[in-house]
């Protein structure tokens, strides 16, 4: 029998997780793949419609406002701030996960709290931007912005913008909620009792994914 002679472990031989991960983490990875397809489909739809159109509004003309700055022309400054906040929240999440590895409960509490603050700040920014655009006359089915060539644009510019950033915002919202639930568990000492902080790692995966998606959403709507 080969079990006696093998020094090297057969990771795929059964009895072990072949990737040496718990089923929960494996599920999270597969879920993220699935969710990537959801966003992929939405962004590809956006690309399809945009390439079908003869012209499209210029992001620099649309997104140039900043809170309390009146009518100053600050193209893409606000969204850059939003992006910076979200990326920083990923950094704090990395630190929270790291603290979890070393079973540093106070560290997890501190960094997870900052992540929640970052996520909430991002959502607040998004709410401000949506409100601002709404008051400028933009909404689903309404597009006040002209194409870059001066012609009247179809409503699909705003349709896709609100649908996809809204769908992403929904993901950020659920991420913040998950983080709060996990933080509550950390405070209760659930993971200390369990002996590991893997749940922090799992919500961390989700959080990084949501950030990564934002990079694509940001590129598609603000840069291209």
């Amino acid at each position: 029998m080969d079990t006696a002679v093998t020094a090297k472990k057969k990771w795929w031989g059964g009895g072990y997780s072949p990737f040496n991960v718990s089923y929960g983490k494996l599920m999270m990875w597969y879920f993220l793949m699935s969710d990537a397809f959801t966003f992929g489909a939405l962004l590809i739809s956006y690309g399809t419609i945009r390439f079908m159109s003869t012209s499209w509004p210029d992001a620099n003309d649309v997104f140039h406002a900043f809170p309390f700055m009146g009518h100053m022309n600050l193209p893409l400054v606000f969204v850059s701030l939003m992006t910076f906040i979200l990326i920083m929240s990923s950094v704090t999440m990395v630190l929270a996960v790291h603290a979890g590895h070393t079973r540093d409960r106070n560290g997890v509490v501190k960094w997870l709290s900052w992540t929640i603050v970052g996520g909430a700040a991002f959502l607040a920014c998004q709410a401000w931007e949506w409100t601002h655009l709404y008051h400028a006359g933009a909404w689903w089915g309404r597009n006040p912005f002209l194409n870059v060539d001066g012609t009247v644009a179809s409503t699909n510019f705003t349709n896709f913008f609100f649908t996809i950033t809204g769908f992403h915002g929904l993901h950020v919202t659920s991420g913040v909620v998950l983080n709060i639930v996990i933080l509550a568990n950390v405070l209760k000492g659930t993971y200390e009792q369990r002996g590991h902080y893997e749940m922090v790692e799992k919500v961390g995966l989700y959080w990084h994914f949501v950030d990564l998606v934002w990079v694509f959403v940001f590129t598609c709507f603000y840069l291209l």
Binding site: S34, D35, F37, T38, F39, G40, A41, L42, S45, I49, W140, G141, R142, S154, T155, N156, N159, F160, T163, F167
Partner: peptide, 20 residues
């Protein structure tokens, strides 16, 4: 998930005045 995305856009077309 791709079907779900398609349905989301369809729901907006039905109720939010979009033209996807």
């Amino acid at each position: 998930p791709v079907l779900l995305s398609g349905f989301i856009l369809l729901l907006f077309d039905r109720h939010a005045g979009t033209s996807f």
